[in-house]
Amino acid sequence: MNIFRLTGDLAHLTAIIILLLKIWKTRSCSGISGKSQILFTVVYITRYLDLFTNYISAYNTLMKIIFVVSSLATVFLIYFKFKATYDRNHDTFRMEFLIIPSIILALLIRHEFTVMEVLWTFSIYLEAVAILPQLFLVSKTGEAETITSHYLFALGSYRGLYLLNWIWRYYFENFLDWISIVAGFVQTVLYCDFFYLYVTRVLHGRKLRLPA
């Protein structure tokens, strides 16, 4: 564990809490892509199957359980409890466009051809692109609530901080996993346009509105 890993994990946790609180406090999930949330739930479930097979640390187990449970809770709030507020007309990105290529790529490029390893690799690839339905929804409506912007910023920072963690681990632990690194890089790049708008607009007290 290094400082980048820890802050990355905390950014991830913060993002999840921001989203749940936003939905709960406003009793609304408008502006939130239910599809991205379903994809994240699939990511956590397929990645954290190792909860049943190996124990790493109390921290590791606790965080994995929090991610799985909170993502399930988010999906429940969007599709059941506050479903009347869900922007289904704008949330039109096709999930299979992300899921199917991720499955194919995981079957082709992975460390070992075992069920657990392919599912883990699939989760890494799917996570890299799982935010696309959310970014698509924001681009369709042309704006995002400030709280949604904070959520996206925290969620985007997390994999960026992991990139620094991987550089650290390469130098100090001689650890290198190209699958995580390349996917994490792609994931972070997808947020760049949003990061720019966040810094130039939201941090200056304005709402996130896309340029026409």
Partner: peptide, 10 residues
Amino acid sequence: QHATTGKDEL
């Protein structure tokens, strides 16, 4: 590096 090494990450 081996396949199982990255699994301590989240």
